[in-house]
Structures are given as structure tokens and as C-alpha cells.
């Protein structure tokens, strides 16, 4: 397997389209998504339920059964190899070794009938050809690394003997056991309480600087993104609507949806009198996706062209790009 060369992205997704066949017709969950992840980078994917963020992530690992899903087009290059051309057997070698994944609900993603230790050891013996003793030693190291006290005894316990936060630490230990090039974390703290969430984010930040793993963090919480990510991808209606560095996006959002997301959540450090500005309406129906901009019906700045034509991702300077006509070079003139 190729080692990632410096500056060469770990992951490169191009024009990915994924659909589901449902009774009403073809649900276009992911409609042409492009992005990349550089070595050691933490990329956040933000959006609401149904925006396609989890489908994108699961497609990266080819975890969505087909049917009902169908990858309509696109390319996913991971460490220089095309994921979409791999057989199930080849994928199985990749998952858990070069690509790790943490899911939202740590209880349903661990096997309740196996000890925590055996679930980490399984990974190590299968992918790294370790013998039982080596694997056990490494498993204990991993549990210590993610901050589980008395790892030597905890390793023989079952998932139900762990609390929610501790289970999520175990999940992280499993995902990182084989030193993956990419970790996909799908809402890793959504099921946890804030104080436990803070603990898990701290573990992830520390591991990030120690192991230099690239991370894709999927979340709906903008605060988490601000704290841990380098770059952000905002998704809406199955498309990337804005992308940029964390700093660019939070200080100067260029898409009205990003702006709306930031204004509609009350902030702990804001004054009470500042009104909350909700985004009116509801997300689009992806069985019949709109012809123009998907956000146009909810957008406070909508123009005539927005209904008819999708602008595509327009460059906004720096590394920032947004799928909005307002960023078109002729927008100023058109408005005047």
C-alpha cells in the first residue's frame, strides 16, 4: 500500500452522487460532492439531518448496502487508490486498518457479547498479524491512551460494564488501534452529556497532535467544529454549500445557510437581548430536488436566478468557496 506523500491528500472525493430507491422514486441523498482531506488535517462536515453528511461518510467506507443505495457517479481516492473499484474483500482489509470509524451511539456499535479487549484484539490480530500476547499488550496500551483507568482489568469487561463516555473511549481505541491514515467520526459526542463530551473532545485533540491521523468529524454542533477542526464543509440538500478554513467560515460566512446556522443558535457568551433569527421553512425534498439553489425557498436574499440555476461552488478568495449567486462577480451589478 502506498504511503501518503507530503501534500498529496489522504482522501480525495470528486463529484460523488449517491441515491436511494424509495417508494416515491429516487431519493438523491448526495448530489455531487467534492472535497479532500490533507495528511494530519481535521475536516468538519456540518449540516442538519438529511443533508447527506452521514451518507457521504458511510460511502467513503462503502458501508451502505446496495440496494437500496446506488453510487451513481464519482470517485473516492484514498491513499492514491480508487475506493469505488474495490471488491468487498479488499474493503474489509481497509476498514479498521487504514480507515477507522467512530459512530454516534457507542452502545449499539460495540458487540455486547464480547469483552472490550477481544474487540480491540480482533482488529490487531486480523490486520497487523500480531500474536495474542502482542495484541493484548497493544490493546492495554490503547485503552490507557484514551484515558481508561485500570486498563489491565477493564480489558476483560463487557460493554455494559462501561458508561457512555467510557464506551466512546473504547470505540476510539478500536478505531485507532491499527494506526489508520484516516479516522471518520460520525457525531461522536451527540449521545453524550456536555461534561463527558468535553472529555472525549479533549482525548481526540490530544490523539490528533500525538498520532497525526487525519480526521473527518461529522457534527451538527458548530461549537465543536470551532474548537477542533482546521477546515469545514457545510452541507445542505445533498450538496456542499460552503467550504473554507474554520477562521474564514466563522468570521465571514459567504453562504446564507451558514450565516443562518450561526445566527439561529443562541451562544453561551452572547447577550440575552440579541434576538434569535430562525431559518424559516424546512429542508428540500430530495426525491424532487429543486432545479436552482436548494436553499432558495428559505433564503432571505433570494433572487430570480436562484430559482432557476444552481451557481456551483464559487470562489470567494482564500480557500473559501460558496454555492451562492451572491458571490458571483456580477452580483453587485445585478443588485444595483
Amino acid at each position: 500500500m502506498n504511503k501518503p506523500i507530503a501534500r498529496e491528500p489522504v482522501l480525495e472525493v470528486k463529484n460523488l452522487k449517491v441515491s436511494f430507491h424509495v417508494r416515491e422514486g429516487e431519493l438523491q441523498a448526495v448530489r455531487g460532492v467534492d472535497f479532500h482531506v490533507d495528511p494530519g488535517e481535521v475536516v468538519g462536515i456540518v449540516g442538519e439531518s438529511g443533508c447527506g453528511k452521514s451518507v457521504t461518510a458511510q460511502t467513503l467506507m462503502r458501508l451502505i448496502p446496495s440496494p437500496p443505495s446506488r453510487i451513481k457517479s464519482g470517485s473516492i481516492r484514498f491513499l492514491g487508490e480508487e475506493i469505488l473499484l474495490k471488491s468487498e474483500k479488499e474493503m474489509r482489509k481497509l476498514r479498521g486498518s487504514k480507515m477507522g470509524m467512530i459512530f454516534q451511539d457507542p452502545m449499539t456499535s460495540l458487540n455486547p457479547t464480547l469483552t472490550v479487549g477481544s474487540q480491540i484484539i480482533e482488529n490487531l490480530t486480523r490486520h497487523l498479524n500480531m500474536n495474542a500476547a502482542q495484541a493484548k499488550k497493544r490493546a492495554i496500551e490503547m485503552l490507557k491512551l484514551v484515558g481508561i483507568p485500570s486498563a489491565e482489568t477493564r480489558i476483560n469487561q463487557y460493554p455494559h460494564e462501561f458508561s457512555g463516555g467510557m464506551r466512546q473511549r473504547v470505540m476510539i481505541a478500536i478505531a485507532l488501534a491499527c494506526d489508520p491514515a484516516l479516522l471518520i467520526a460520525d457525531e461522536p459526542t451527540t449521545a453524550l452529556d456536555v461534561t463527558i463530551q468535553a472529555q472525549i473532545l479533549e482525548v481526540m485533540k490530544e490523539l490528533r497532535s500525538r498520532l497525526k491521523t487525519s480526521i473527518i468529524l461529522i457534527t451538527h454542533n458548530l461549537g465543536i467544529v470551532a474548537g477542533i477542526c482546521d477546515r469545514v464543509i457545510v452541507m445542505y440538500g445533498g450538496q456542499v454549500v460552503e467550504t473554507g478554513t474554520v477562521k474564514e467560515l466563522f468570521t465571514n460566512p459567504k453562504h446564507p445557510y451558514t450565516e443562518g446556522l450561526l445566527k439561529s443558535v443562541p451562544r453561551l457568551d452572547s447577550r440575552k437581548e440579541e434576538p434569535l433569527i430562525p431559518i424559516i421553512g424546512t429542508p428540500p425534498d430530495l426525491v424532487h430536488p429543486p432545479a436552482g439553489c436548494a436553499f432558495a425557498p428559505r433564503c432571505p436574499y433570494t433572487m430570480r436566478i436562484c430559482q432557476r440555476l444552481d451557481p456551483g461552488l464559487l470562489d470567494c478568495g482564500g480557500t473559501q468557496a460558496a454555492r451562492c449567486w451572491l458571490n458571483h462577480e456580477m452580483a453587485q451589478e445585478a443588485n444595483a
Partner: peptide, 13 residues
């Protein structure tokens, strides 16, 4: 509890 809440502002974070 208060300090655990992430704030959507990278500079504050």
C-alpha cells in the same frame, strides 16, 4: 458545565 459548552467561534475556543 459552563466551560464544557463549545462556543461557535474559533478564536474564543
Amino acid at each position: 458545565l459552563l466551560s464544557a459548552v463549545p462556543i461557535p467561534d474559533p478564536e474564543i475556543e
